[in-house]
């Protein structure tokens, strides 16, 4: 399970994989269809990976290779545990 706290995604060992941030404060309505695995951001044209369709290990591998990769995360995805106390 991946934990999200203070806008940081950490693995089950507490290692920070990524800091969630977007200079354009994009929401899912700012995304258009892209490839099988990703959307395209309408603001900056970068790919935004759809974590609904990814195994946890694929997400970890992606972030290990590129911690700046953009992600779309469904709060209801059981892969992620979100700490609301910091919101």
């Amino acid at each position: 399970m991946l934990r999200i706290r203070n806008n940081q995604i950490t693995d089950d060992k507490g290692r920070v994989l990524k800091t969630l941030s977007c200079p354009f404060k994009v929401s899912d309505s700012d995304l258009r269809a892209g490839t099988d695995l990703s959307f395209e951001c309408k603001k900056c044209s970068r790919p935004v990976y759809d974590t609904d369709r990814m195994h946890e290990i694929e997400i970890v591998d992606l972030l290990n290779a590129d911690p700046n990769a953009c992600l779309k995360i469904n709060r209801l995805n059981p892969i992620f545990s979100i700490d609301h106390s910091q919101e």
Binding site: I4, V26, C70, K72
Partner: peptide, 8 residues
């Protein structure tokens, strides 16, 4: 449900 997504 729109509150269900995080993008970043």
């Amino acid at each position: 449900s729109r509150k269900c997504h995080i993008v970043g």
